[in-house]
Simulated assay, not measured.
Amino acid sequence: MKDYSAQPLKLRKNRVWRTYYGGRSIDEWQGASAPEDSSMPEEWIASVVRARNAGREQLVEGLSLVELDGADGPELKQLIEAEPAKFLGERHTAAYGSQTGVLVKALDSAERLTIQAHPDRSTAQRIFSSPFGKTEAWYILGGREIGGELPYILYGFKPGMTREKWEKLFWEQDIEGMIHALHKIPVEPGQVFIVEGGMPHAIGSGCFLIEIQEPTDFTIRVERTTPAGREIPEFMLHQGAGFERMFDCFRYDTYTLEDVLAQFRLSPRTIQESEEYTERSLISYATTPYFALTSLDIRSSCTIRQEDGFSILVVAQGAGSLAWGKECLQVTQGDQLFLPAGVTELQCERIGDEPLQLLRCFPPSVSP
């Protein structure tokens, strides 16, 4: 097989079935001719993780394919597993083997997601025998009004909540009680939220965002039926942990709204600025060691450099060209790329009048 570890790898579109409806904004973002909401509301980017969907186990959903000459190439997972150090870097491979340690998604909700939480690493190890939990973070790309309501999230327990009360709300299926137990927060493009393992939350209707997370699909849901009326199988509630242990996955700390906004809504920070481009840190390793995210707003051009490591690029807006050595690749809004460790330098240039924004996603921090 040809060595692909020294070139950017463009990835095929990779929509995944979920329990909620949405995806029209992703269709529009990717230039689809007939955008619509459906049961495929998520785009999984640079994924080496299979989706956990009860009743669809026979389907291989979630794994990213490399695009070669406009057609389906091999799975990204296969390429990495064949030569992990060349694709991921020596230090990362020493720490994580052939696992990238990160998963990126584009997500668009036409309805509120069911209230949920994800296990932190220690809980995931204890309950699911997984070295990874599912701490995640959201970068809001946009949104739309649905049913007269603007985009929002539900986040964090209000003062007074306890495990006993939360379990009671679940067994009674008191959905309104669950909703009112969490803070409702309007969201706007450009905002960033960190969602640590154990934090109760739900993405509201009308949210279009990029999610970066640990590489698992462990989602503990407390609603037996989605807002649109879809019944959720028991496995999708507790993920095989059982009803007693599923509540171990929630963190029962409580917060005022001011606490939530101060601690978990992040403030982007400018790293570099010139006439050619601005680079901002959206999520840093100081916030979480599990991943990082930066934004490159390119007015004319910039150079991406890597040293013994890989990253993932998402073209959030605009169009451009990416050049390495004597080769060049044109990209446009909605495109997604994996940059193997062998790509040590990449020249990025804007094409056209629209601003070019690249989101660069990084794996877990690895100590030197």
Rank of each mutant, 00 (worst) to 15 (best):
E167Q: 15
G156Q: 04
C207L: 12
E172G: 03
V192Q: 11
F218E: 05
Q213K: 13
G160W: 04
E167A: 12
V192N: 10
P151A: 00
E214C: 08
M161S: 01
E172T: 15
L150I: 08
R144W: 00
R163Y: 01
I175M: 12
L154P: 02
G147S: 12
G206D: 07
M161A: 03
S205A: 14
E164L: 12
C207V: 15
E172A: 14
G143A: 01
G177T: 05
G142Y: 00
G142K: 02
I220H: 04
E196F: 07
G177F: 09
H180M: 11
K165C: 01
V195T: 14
E211R: 08
P186Q: 00
R144Q: 08
T162C: 08
P200I: 13
I146G: 06
V187M: 08
C207Y: 03
I153Q: 10
E176T: 15
M199D: 04
R221T: 09
E211P: 01
G190V: 04
I210M: 14
D217C: 14
P151H: 05
F208I: 11
Q191L: 07
I185R: 12
R144S: 09
F208P: 00
I185C: 09
L182F: 04
Y155T: 11
E149W: 02
P186G: 01
R163W: 01
G190T: 03
E211Y: 14
W166I: 11
I185N: 06
P200S: 05
E211H: 11
D174W: 12
A202H: 03
I146V: 14
H183V: 07
F170M: 04
P186I: 05
P159M: 02
K168S: 11
A181P: 10
C207G: 04
Q213C: 10
R221S: 09
H183Q: 13
H180W: 12
F157E: 01
E149D: 11
E223H: 02
G177N: 05
R163E: 15
L154Y: 15
W171H: 15
F208S: 13
E214K: 08
L182H: 01
F218I: 14
F208K: 10
I203E: 13
V222R: 03
G142M: 03
I210W: 05
P200F: 08
E214D: 12
K184H: 09
K184Y: 02
Q191D: 13
W171D: 13
V222D: 03
E176S: 14
I179N: 12
E145V: 12
A202D: 02
F157T: 03
K184P: 00
L150A: 14
E188N: 11
I153D: 10
V195W: 03
I146W: 05
M199E: 03
P200N: 09
M199Y: 02
G190Y: 01
A202G: 03
P186M: 00
A181L: 09
I203Y: 05
V192Y: 12
E176R: 15
E211A: 06
E149C: 11
G204I: 04
P186R: 01
P215Q: 14
I146S: 07
E188W: 08
G177Y: 05
Q191G: 07
I146A: 05
F170N: 04
K168I: 10
P159H: 07
G197I: 04
M161N: 00
V187W: 01
G206W: 02
P189L: 06
T216A: 10
E188S: 15
E145I: 09
H201W: 06
A202K: 04
P159G: 09
Q173H: 05
E176W: 13
